[in-house]
Every structure is written in C-alpha cells, then in structure tokens.
C-alpha cells in the first residue's frame, strides 16, 4: 500500500477522473478536536472533494456508533466499511499488533514513521489482511506516559507498590514488571479514582491527559515515552476489493497524505499538551536520554512475553526495531 506514498497526489486531480458513486461509513472513538479526529475529518473531506461528491463519506466520531472493542468484528462483518481503533484492541485478534504496546520499541516520532513505511509496516499490513482487514493508515496517537499522585517517578524502582489504572495486556505487564500493580476500572471512573486516590496513577498520552483533566487530579507526570500509541484505519477487505481501481488509488493516496499530516501533528500536539500540563501545575520529570537504558532494561520481561505470544511475526518485528 505504501509504495504509492511517493506518487504526487496532483496527478489524480489533474486527470479529472470520473468516480463511481459509493457510500463509505467510517466509525472511530476519539473526541473531536483530537489531532487524529482532525486528520480523519480532513481525509473524508478530501475524498469527497476529489471525487466530485461521488464518494459519500459518513463519519461517526466519539464512539457514537461503535466502541473501540466493537470495531474489529463490526468491520470484519461489514457493519461499517471503515473503522479506526487502537492497535491494542487489534492485538486481541492479531497478536502482532501488540508490538506498539511493547515498551520502548520506538524512541522518536521519525523512527515510527520510517518503520511503518517499510518492512515493519508491511508485516503488520499482511497480518491484518490475513483476518480480512486492509490497513489504510497508521494514525499516530503519541507517546504514552505515567501520571500519579504519590511521588515523582524518576526511576523504575519508584513504581514499587503503586496502584496504576491500566488498559491492555502489555501495558499491564509493564506496570507489573516495574513493581506496581495494574488496576482495572471503568473509563468513567478514572477521574474520580485519581481524585479520591482509589488508584495512585494512570497511563495515557499527554493529549488525552489534557482532554480528561488529569492535571486536576494528579500531581506528578513522568515523561518516559514508554509506548507509542497507534490507531489503525482499516477497511473491510471484501468491500475494498469491489471498489474500482481509481477509487482505491484516490483513497490510498489521501490516506497516505493524512498519515503524514497526523504524524507531524502528533509531535506538535505531544509538545503542546505537555506544556499545558506544566502550565497547569503538574510536576514533570522528563527521563534524560542517558537513563533510558535503565527503563528499557527493566521492561525486558514484556519483550519476552510479546515474543512468546506473537510468534514468528512478532520476532520479525522485534528484530527490525532492535536492529536500529
């Protein structure tokens, strides 16, 4: 798919092609205003414009149609034509997708982009195609961090004894590897849980921390970039195969443009929201580069768990990122 990425989009515009009418319903579960949401809105608008309105994009944001968990099977059964949800959810069906939850796989935004445009991305795309979903876009959400109420977390040892709200298999394994206990609670209860100190901390990207007012209920933020949250825009394979070639090309090109745009925004948004959290009074500890190895070393058990669970594809992915 990404081999098309270097073609200039202007070619299609100039050709003034005719597109077959189509209706595409796209569901995702992120609030409007988030940079991925903005990317998706723009993606839909461009496709409608470039196809002269022949392709009707119907967007369902905020989980108003489907939650992240429903998305996989709804997409596979054609409930919606396109769906975007987190790689963590996909890892329940396609274990290799857990790679984004493996700690410290990517240390910089550019690294993720390069990997996803190369063999690394191809492995994931083909694993997804095996279950019946074509990956159109990897939407970067941003790096994951820890916020907590107890103390500044300046080394993995500082996690010992903390209760941290967690979602997903591998992030929970990491919390355990660092000596803390993962706590599972409903999304609607996290704010209160932090406020009343039912849990000591939580993990998320800084964009979400601003969105969910974490600064009101936690004191310390640790920037250790332990994970790179990824959202997958998938399209039902059967639906895709039935689309005319020019429509496919149009969608793929627009998706590639959007993917690049989102990646740039991710960096800017992570920086902006970190500043917001600082301004609102959170005490921030940014792990210095020369200490990252300690954090990575302590997280190695999670690499092993992933390798066991994700089989051959998993090992290949790890080899690629480890080779860098």
């Amino acid at each position: 798919a990404c081999s098309n990425g270097d073609e200039t989009p202007k070619e299609t515009e100039a050709s003034g092609e005719e597109y077959e009418p189509a209706t595409i319903r796209l569901a995702y579960n992120l609030p409007s205003g988030h940079h991925i949401s903005e990317g998706i809105e723009e993606f839909a608008k461009k496709i409608e414009e470039k196809s002269n309105g022949q392709i009707d994009m119907q967007i369902f944001a905020n989980g108003q149609l489907l939650s992240d968990t429903d998305m996989n099977q709804s997409l596979l059964t054609g409930g919606v034509e396109m769906g975007m949800n987190s790689s963590t959810i996909w890892s329940s069906t396609v274990p290799a997708m857990g790679i984004f939850d493996v700690p410290y796989v990517f240390e910089a935004y550019e690294e993720a982009g390069e990997a996803l445009n190369g063999e690394f991305g191809d492995i994931l795309r083909s694993e997804m195609e095996d279950v019946g979903v074509k990956v159109l876009m990897f939407g970067d959400y941003g790096f994951g961090q820890f916020a907590n109420n107890k103390r500044p977390l300046e080394s993995p040892e500082d996690f010992r004894g903390l209760k941290i709200r967690s979602v997903g298999t591998l992030p929970s394994e990491l919390i355990q590897a660092y000596g803390a206990s993962p706590v599972f609670m409903g999304g609607g209860e996290v704010y209160m849980g932090l406020q009343r100190q039912t849990v000591d901390g939580a993990t998320s990207g800084t964009t979400a921390m601003v969105q969910r007012s974490y600064d009101e209920v936690t004191d310390y933020l640790t920037i250790n970039n332990y994970t790179y949250f990824e959202f997958i825009l998938g399209v039902n394979q059967e639906f895709w195969d039935d689309l005319p070639e020019n429509t496919q090309t149009l969608i793929e090109e627009t998706a590639n443009e959007t993917e690049e745009w989102i990646r740039q925004q991710t960096k800017l948004e992570d920086e902006r929201t970190l500043q917001v959290l600082k301004d609102r009074g959170m005490e921030v500890y940014e792990v210095p580069d020369d200490e990252l190895d300690i954090w990575k070393e302590a997280a190695m058990p999670v690499w092993e768990i992933f390798e066991e669970e994700a089989g051959e594809a998993g090992s290949e992915l790890l080899d690629i990122v480890d080779g860098e």
Binding site: P31, G188, V210, S213, E216
Partner: peptide, 18 residues
C-alpha cells in the same frame, strides 16, 4: 456529583470535570 454524564461531557469537550 459524581456524575457520569458530566465526566463524559468533559472528555467530549475538554472542559474541566472538576
């Protein structure tokens, strides 16, 4: 409070839940 709809409104709009 506490109110689940308010938490939801907060996360949909970015308004302070507090």
């Amino acid at each position: 409070p506490p109110s689940v709809p308010m938490i939801l409104y907060g996360s949909l709009t970015g308004e302070s839940v507090g």
